[in-house]
């Protein structure tokens, strides 16, 4: 029983790490541009499928490096030609636009790579269990946790130490002032969008190895990412990270005791959080309006 519980907690932690990685990208875009990117899951799927196509040529490590960058480039183009035009309008429109994009991306991956799930090759030495007692501790899972930790660390480093990151944070607080101070806000939002999509692409490359490669991989991960943002608190990236891990672990634990509620439980949790603390666990005051 303990082993089963441990297994599911660990599993939940990994899934939660994906939620967090995806939710961080969503959060970045939402905070700076006020756009809910419904197509985030579609970009995740693109990242995963690009990696699948690249692996035969450049190997797993090469794909891990290149696929997220390619995904981010597609994201930059989408922002430049579509989403940018909607910043001045009601947020409803950007939501509908990304909604349509989500359809197109999911159907597009299905058209290019087929509807069946595809085999996804990860290096052999990563797939074997590290311990016979804790069979679930495969190298790949451990590696994913480490990689997500590195990615999140890098993101927070970029945001707190580099010029771009400082501008993103400043823009989140007050975009108009940042613009008056001579920062190219259009470029800033463009790069910020690309950064968010990069995280989605990275999550895709990793998630495909664990969840299997399927055109709907993105749409199954997008809703929990929303929940992660709401539970963690709007406007707070550490909150988003915490929210993602938390709902992953909670739904992992629920899998042990009440498997059929493993998905619903995170929404119940969201309801409780909203009831007790409407701005989310680490949310900033005054962000709701």
């Amino acid at each position: 029983m303990t082993q089963l519980l441990l297994f599911n907690v660990f599993n939940g932690l990994i899934v939660g790490a994906f939620y967090a990685l995806m939710a961080l990208g969503l959060s970045l875009i939402l905070n700076l541009s006020g756009v809910i990117n419904f197509a985030h899951g579609g970009f995740l799927a693109i990242g995963a499928y690009l990696a699948y196509s690249l692996i035969p040529y450049v190997g797993f490590w090469g794909a891990l490096l290149i696929a997220p960058i390619l995904t981010a480039m597609i994201g930059l183009l989408v922002e430049r030609f579509l989403i940018r035009r909607l910043y001045q309008r009601d947020p409803l429109y950007s939501l509908l636009l990304t909604f349509g994009l989500a359809y197109i991306l999911e159907d597009g991956t299905r058209m290019i790579w087929g509807a069946q799930s595809l085999p996804y090759v990860i290096p052999d030495w990563l797939t074997s269990p590290l311990s016979s007692e804790y069979f679930f501790l495969t190298g790949y899972r451990l590696f994913m946790v480490v990689l997500v930790a590195v990615a999140v660390g890098a993101l927070f480093y970029i945001l707190s130490r580099t010029r771009l990151g400082m501008r993103i944070r400043a823009g989140t607080a007050d975009l108009e002032t940042v613009s008056v101070l001579g920062v190219n806000v259009r470029l800033l939002r463009n790069l910020n969008f690309g950064l968010g999509i990069y995280l989605a692409g990275l999550a895709g490359v990793l998630a495909a190895g664990m969840l299997g490669l399927d055109p709907t991989i993105g749409s199954t991960l997008i809703m929990p990412s929303f929940v992660a943002i709401i539970v963690g608190g709007l406007g707070s990236l550490p909150g988003t990270l915490l929210g993602g891990l938390l709902i992953g672990v909670v739904s992992g634990i629920t899998t042990v005791y009440f498997p059929s509620a493993s998905e619903a439980v995170m929404y119940v949790m969201m309801g409780v959080v909203l009831l007790v603390r409407p701005r989310g666990l680490l949310g900033e005051e005054g962000r709701l309006q």
């Binding site: 636009l97 909604f99 349509g100 994009l101 989500a102 359809y103 197109i104 159907d107 597009g108 299905r110």
Partner: peptide, 8 residues
């Protein structure tokens, strides 16, 4: 799906 998405 693509057509409806494009329509959006």
């Amino acid at each position: 799906m693509s057509i409806i998405g494009l329509f959006f």
